[in-house]
Amino acid sequence: MGEQTFTDLERRDTERHLLVAVDESKNSKRAVMYVADFFGSFKDIFITLLSIIPDPSEDYFATDEEKTKWLDEKKQVLEESLAGYKEILLGAGFKENQVMILLSVRQCTSIGDAIVEEQDKQRCCIVVVGRRGISHNEEFIFGSTSSKVLHHAKNCAVMVVE
């Protein structure tokens, strides 16, 4: 397998490309460490580290400035987490050209569906997500991103790291 360009979609279908959906949480870090440990010795695997920030409603903020400040802070936290996760992967043996970072702010009603949409776009063969380990009641009211990905993803495998 040659150099990964991350743009040649036709070639993607023949490659082993993992989408690792993360946020700043400990369970995301666990998922990245699992991927590093499990796949670190493979030379033909490519990884996209994906973080999604749902564009927050104007209702949450009294002014536009407050919204901008919230988004900037959220982006900074995620950029730092993503950089840390990349370091973990590089430390496990992945090369710089095997790992791509994608941070996306978008309008979405469900982060899980946005992850599945990105998997479809990037043509990844495996989606990896961490799991928050929420209670029954929490899942009922707030929903579960890992469950959503597990149920909605098509044409790929899903790994849920507990």
Binding site: P56, Y60, T109, S110, I111, G112, F140, I141, F142, G143, S144, T145, K148
Partner: peptide, 9 residues
């Protein structure tokens, strides 16, 4: 500020 399920509540 909903988490995964926008309409769960």
């Amino acid at each position: 500020m909903h988490i995964e399920s926008m309409f769960g509540f």
